[in-house]
């Protein structure tokens, strides 16, 4: 198992845990380029700047679009590493009072980050 630090667009460091090691996967070399994938459904949103929470990856962003569904909602967020789509419950959208142009934190646990060499 390895914990991998990936610098994205020279801006933000994302952390991933993979069961591979440099011995089992040749792409795990410092300086090697990888793509980083995570699922829209695994993105959490917080309105608080500092939050004690065991979610390793936190990216600041601004909500640029909200599409509210009956149960789930789709948010588009502008971040320093590009556009991120988050799908969260409409309940949370309401509870957090999320609206367009709002500054938020996007959070993804390290075990949700897939590396694609």
């Amino acid at each position: 198992m390895s914990i991998v630090y990936v610098e994205v667009d020279n801006q933000i460091e994302l952390i991933s845990v993979v069961i591979d090691t440099p011995q089992t996967a040749s792409y795990l070399i410092k300086g090697n380029k990888v793509n980083v994938l995570f699922k829209e459904m695994e993105v959490a949103i917080s309105t608080q700047k500092e939050l004690d929470v065991s979610i390793e990856n936190k990216i600041p962003g601004i909500i640029t679009n909200i599409e509210i569904g009956v149960l789930m909602s789709r948010l588009i967020l502008e971040t320093s590493i590009g556009e991120v789509v988050a799908i969260i419950s409409s309940l949370s959208v309401k509870q957090l009072g999320l609206v367009d142009k709002m500054k938020v934190k996007i959070m993804v646990k390290l075990n949700e980050i897939i590396l694609a060499p």
């Binding site: 991933s16 569904g69 149960l71 789930m72 909602s73 789709r74 799908i87 694609a116 060499p117």
Partner: peptide, 22 residues
Amino acid sequence: NKTSAKFRFSGEVLKIEREDVI
């Protein structure tokens, strides 16, 4: 094999349904 994902299969799309925003 080009992703670190280990739970991995190939298959054929049978149906695509829209539900709510997903």
